[in-house]
Write a protein that binds this DNA or RNA. Structure first.
Lengths: 124, 124
DNA sequence: TTCTTATGTGCAACTTAGTCGCATTTTATA
DNA sequence: TATAAAATGCGACTAAGTTGCACATAAGAA
């Protein structure tokens, strides 16, 4: 599925900003915040946040808050859990954990916090 | 364990602000943000954030970011997972879920996001 | 290809959570 | 009761995210 297809499928206009923004998110296999993205492309923050909101409404992108008060965004292609390290603040994607069920709830996202493998190793 | 004992055990000074702050957190069985707390007690936000940071360092309190860009705090008495509803933004404590293990990681906190029982019911 | 219109973009001003420096107050101890 | 270290409150600041508005652009019609 190309970026052009995704945009077309949702009946959104294909603009330069949208192509660039989805291009960056698609190319990186990790969640990115606005700060990460503005290092890579020159885009006004109002444009960034308006497009990101639209992508979230259309279920193209999903997001979560990390430990650093910033929101991180990624393509919703393969929904998966995340691990946020309290020590180094790194965000890892956990693509292979077994599904968890909570009776009565619909789970769309799981965030684990704690100490990642690297930091745990350094502590020992 | 009284608030006075907790403070003394960690070798912190027992001040009016600290007693009030821990009193509020102790009295409410749900995570609270600064906005929630300033409705209940009159405390400068610098004092709030400095004390909350100290309580976190001392493992008296823990915290997480919600969907609303605010950080929520609660006593660390009974560590447990949380459910944040994407629809109504409510935060629920999940005190009875079975423990999850991730090989190589130390998990200190789990946050589930999705649709809570109430909102799921309304959708149907 | 050009015209038209709805939609998107960029700018600047704004809001709000959270931080920091500093003068003053309070706690704990001698 | 005196003292020193630590906590508080204030005001100024930072940075994420939002909003209104004028201008630019995508996409379909003519």
């Amino acid at each position: 599925m190309t970026i052009e297809n995704i945009i077309e499928e949702k009946n959104l206009k294909l603009t330069v900003a949208r192509r660039e923004l989805l291009g960056i998110l698609h190319a990186h296999n990790r969640p990115l915040c606005f700060e990460d993205i503005k290092e890579k492309i020159n885009m006004d923050k109002a444009t960034f946040y308006r497009n990101i909101s639209k992508f979230e409404e259309e279920a193209i992108v999903n997001s979560f808050e990390s430990n650093d008060k910033k929101r991180y965004y990624e393509m919703q292609e393969f929904p998966h859990a995340h691990f946020i390290c309290n020590t180094c603040n790194a965000i890892e994607c956990l693509k292979n954990i077994e599904p968890i069920n909570l009776e009565g709830y619909i789970i769309t996202d799981i965030i684990f916090k704690g100490i990642c493998k690297g930091c745990k190793h350094e502590e020992e």
